[in-house]
Amino acid sequence: MEKEFISKPLGTHRNLLGEGPLWDEDKSILYWVDIQLAEIHQWDFQTEVHTTYSFPVRIGAIAKRSDTGFIAATEKGFATIEIPSCEIHFIGNPEEQLVHNRFNDGKCDRKGRFWAGTLNENGVKEAAALYKLDHSGKFSKMLADVSCSNGIAWTADYQKMYYIDTSTRSIVEFDFDEQLGLISNKKLVLLVPATDGIPDGMTIDQQGMLWVALWGGGKVIKIDPKKRMVVGEIKVPSKLVTSCAFGGKDFKDLFITTASIGYTEKEFSEEPLAGCTFVVSQLEVGGEPSNHYISSI
């Protein structure tokens, strides 16, 4: 196991359901969402100023667009978003008829397609799905019978895609056809023991190691997907760890979002940093810049 790293909070803001950290290397800004409060948060590393932007819908995930603004997966489907104006333009909702479903986690692949999945807020199993949004704004269902769509990551050569359906407690691997944007040949990478928490968001480093946030586990684990084993961990002073992403100088900082939803006063007194967004500075191996959504619409 690696040496112990320290998770330090960014400021004092407490998220209700912090998710989806996204590093903007051009501006040295970290973005993340608070899904339940329908907010996008911005932390400027040059000024250390924290800014909150409020929206009329809950946002599960965002990615930068190649031209301007963001692509977003929301409770009402795919949309484009502008900051600081908070303009939002809806593209389409593949699950408009499923009123208890909302979009959750999502990321762009190297070709600029946006992959995002849904969950059922009543906890109905296998009632959600994973979708792909192409450059023209057309969406396709890529996986059915999903319960809680979460982390996505690709290998550097884009031959493999890793994916988490949280309710299964599993990290799985697919063969990835980058040209066509198709997945096949599902295999289990790791089953997380229930006593460790459940897998949520995920990122990948330059050596192909997976970093997975454990909801209820108070940590991020490092997985070697080839050996199919945990090879490290970072403890977080907040139990409900939701996601992680690389950024900062040389992309060697790991940003970690957490939640405080459902906490009692007693739990807050025991866990005063619950819901904070954290940074672990200068890991030995960093990650890669996030991909942008390339739009022709």
Rank of each mutant, 00 (worst) to 15 (best):
A144K: 15
F255S: 00
T264Y: 08
S184L: 11
L254G: 00
I198E: 12
Q179I: 13
W215K: 02
V280A: 03
E173A: 04
E173S: 10
D200W: 09
C276G: 13
L283F: 05
A156P: 04
K160P: 03
S170Y: 04
I204M: 05
M142H: 04
Q207N: 14
K160V: 09
Y158D: 12
V236E: 08
S184V: 11
V230T: 13
S149L: 11
C244A: 06
T277F: 12
V236T: 05
L240Q: 14
L240M: 13
I256Y: 06
G201S: 04
T168A: 05
L143Y: 14
I152C: 01
D165R: 05
E284T: 15
D145Q: 15
D205M: 03
D250I: 08
E173R: 11
A259E: 13
D157L: 00
T166F: 00
Y163Q: 03
K239A: 11
G197S: 09
N150W: 04
Q206P: 07
K249R: 15
E271D: 12
N185K: 10
I152R: 01
E270A: 06
D224T: 01
K186F: 02
M142K: 08
F246C: 03
I204G: 01
S281C: 14
R228N: 09
K249M: 15
A156S: 14
V279C: 11
V280T: 08
C148S: 14
S149W: 10
D250V: 08
K141M: 14
D196I: 00
A259W: 11
A213R: 06
L188W: 01
R169V: 02
L273P: 10
